[in-house]
Design a protein around this nucleic acid. Structure first.
Lengths: 239, 239
DNA sequence: AGAAAAGCAAGAGCAGTGCTCTCGTTTTCT
DNA sequence: AGAAAACGAGAGCACTGCTCTTGCTTTTCT
């Protein structure tokens, strides 16, 4: 009564949580393709049709797991950001990148859930869209904060690339959607996007084992790579 | 008799080809998850058990499609390379990158087959490993050839990153596996790897619609991005 | 407090999947 | 010509997601 939640509502919450928990377990073990509602039900000692009281469909469960994954990754990166608040921007960038990589290597299936093949015929609902940007925004924030502190040095030797008018127009819009985005010149913004996609590209390659024949010390390669992108962005402390 | 192939062998080849062809069709339409042996059989007017005469399993069919996809991508990139033989290195890089992107946008499902979530519990067999490197090797060759012609200008302003000894050791090995690899200094090699992963990272993001809220003119962004990486590598003609 | 409504677990059942095995038939090899 | 190999069809197994009906319990409304 105190919480004005009936026992039934409470049970419902608990069971739903158990469902997702068990789903997460199976996902981590067998991957998204190996996630079966029936098997989740079995593991929880209920009959398969009963789980449909708590979850609309298999895709629904998968969607919840995707949101969880996004949040978990966001937590990891943001935690890295806080722990490095006083470090040099380049080091912050590198450490945040390692946070992403560590997270991905620890939960490859959840990483693929986010950045892998989109599931069959379904467009990620809005719920994921919001949670999905946290990790990316965190990376951008490093650059924004660095810029505010005068710790972005885009010396004339840094390479640039010409951009179409349409693209610079897109950039204006994008800039407005970023807190402190006015700190980011077109060149800088492009460099950040390039660094961002580079980082996720390398992580994806490594997690899907596509770099196995390229190099042995994947961590070292990753470290040097993101260090290089930090320098290419112009973050102070890169050398 | 002339070809010393019996009618049965001939029929076998034809049917196998039809099987793969139909598989490719279904893959393109419904994605890897929606590829069903039974439905392939149905479409070809045979009963499901009959296809097992030609294909070991669903995964076997999928593997053949993966090889096909790798080859197709390799063809596309190599064709781009030949058609740009006399162009400036930076332009060659950009054009090859666009070849990859165009290919991916045209066949998203096949792209995911290569670079997406690895299928359930199976490690890509060696057959794919060879075919899989063609596109990457083509990109590297652009840089090698540019270097041989003195068209790589790594001026002192280009950012670099420190590397561990283990990594430089890995690089020595890697270099030996690349034709003309002795043209590639450690710094250059790292820059190429970074450019390589950047490109595929951005393509992946775009194909999986992860950049939809970032920008409207994806092609322009891609163009500027790979142009920038060309400059970061030091390829002549980037500006 | 009693009746109506809503929530729930279980079971049966449907359509679909990958894959195996058997059984006649056809083709190929010796 | 006879043995051996390859083949297509069918039945069947174990599994999947999902729906519908049937009794029962809890909550809510009057």
């Amino acid at each position: 009564m105190a919480k004005e939640r009936t026992p039934r509502q409470l049970a419902r919450e608990r069971i739903t949580a158990d469902l997702i928990e068990e789903g997460r377990r199976q996902l981590a073990e067998h991957g998204a393709a190996g996630l079966s509602l029936r098997s989740v039900a079995r593991e929880l000692g209920m009959v398969s049709s009963a789980v449909y009281r708590y979850v609309d469909s298999r895709d629904d469960l998968l969607t919840r797991l995707i949101v969880e994954a996004y949040d978990s990754l966001g937590d990891a990166v943001e935690a890295s950001l806080e722990s490095s608040a006083t470090a040099a921007p380049a080091d912050r960038w590198v450490r945040a990148a390692h946070a992403v990589r560590d997270w991905a290597l620890e939960r490859p299936h959840e990483y693929f859930l986010i950045f892998g093949t989109p599931v069959p015929g379904y467009a990620a609902p809005e719920a994921t869209a919001v949670a999905g940007t946290r990790a990316s925004l965190a990376l951008v924030r490093i650059v924004v904060e660095a810029s505010e502190r005068g710790q972005v040095d885009r010396n004339p030797g840094l390479p640039t690339a010409r951009m179409s008018e349409e693209l610079t127009e897109d950039f204006s819009v994008l800039r407005r959607s970023i807190e402190g985005g006015d700190q980011l010149s077109d060149d800088l913004l492009l460099a950040v996007l390039v660094g961002w996609t580079q980082m996720f590209g390398l992580v994806s390659f490594e997690v899907s084992n596509q770099t196995r024949s390229v190099v042995e010390n994947h961590r070292d390669l990753f470290d040097s790579a993101v260090r290089l992108t930090a320098a290419q962005i112009g973050l102070a402390g890169a050398n």
